[in-house]
Design a protein around this nucleic acid. Structure first.
Lengths: 129, 129
DNA sequence: AAGGCTGGTTTCCAATCGGATACCGCCCTA
DNA sequence: TAGGGCGGTATCCGATTGGAAACCAGCCTT
């Protein structure tokens, strides 16, 4: 006698085949600061010290690291100008990345209250352990 | 004599005010496995051991950890059924999160070649150091 | 009675992340 | 010539991440 149970297609073991884009989906882009830096560059190139302003408390080391990472991945270019002036700018690829980033940002704004509520409920449950 | 230089509005120091959603934008959702797990749950609830299949090589510990995190944040619920059967399912919030996640995934697919090329170029530049 | 599957927990460990701090050469201005 | 801004680098350190391996109780099948 068969138990009445929902039958569902089994998960494909190859679902996240190493060659498939999914595991590299740009959720979790770069490091802690990466997406913030991209947003800072959306209105045009910015200088190193200019970037430090909105990125409250970022250390020079972290900023350098993040920028080097974004450069290596082709999202940002480092432009060395006359007189040791350095500017960082979005590449076309980096600019394109702003689109899904905006989608995600919009989503967060739209679900902000739910996110907060869910998180509070989660913490309460955890505290009640 | 004024240097001919592009004048651009300075970055707002409050741009990433701690109360603003931006720093919490769900890029970098949860941990390494979180987004993959969410995708695994899109067709309905799944059991612990069922999830391990497409998540090649994930350890029980990592899977438990990720699931607990997703539960705490309100994206997933743990359903304990009759007979020690356990299933994990998306909450409405978790399901909603699939939307921007799909956007990001689509974006990656669309820019796949550029991403690979940029990364290779970056590595080559780094190797030439 | 023995082994296997399920759904985990615990411990250990190595690697990585990221902040703090100090320091650097170069240029400009006072 | 002293100080300050710029664009970093070097070193140290503690916290976090995440894999490996061992172990577990409860249930089912053989």
């Amino acid at each position: 006698m068969k138990k009445s149970q929902v039958v569902r297609a089994p998960l494909d073991p190859e679902m996240f085949d190493p060659v498939c884009p999914s595991p590299l989906v740009p959720f979790r882009v770069g490091d802690k600061w990466a997406t913030l830096i991209l947003r800072c560059l959306q209105d045009g190139p910015r200088r190193f010290s200019e970037l430090k302003v909105p990125l409250r408390g970022i250390t020079a080391k972290s900023l350098t690291q993040s920028l080097r990472g974004l450069e290596r991945d082709g999202f940002v270019v480092r432009e060395e100008h006359e007189e040791r002036r350095v500017e960082y700018a979005l590449t076309p690829l980096g600019r394109a990345l702003l689109v899904p980033l905006d989608t995600a940002c919009e989503w967060t704004r739209a679900h902000w209250d739910e996110l907060i509520d869910a998180q509070e409920a989660g913490l309460a449950r955890a505290a009640a352990h």
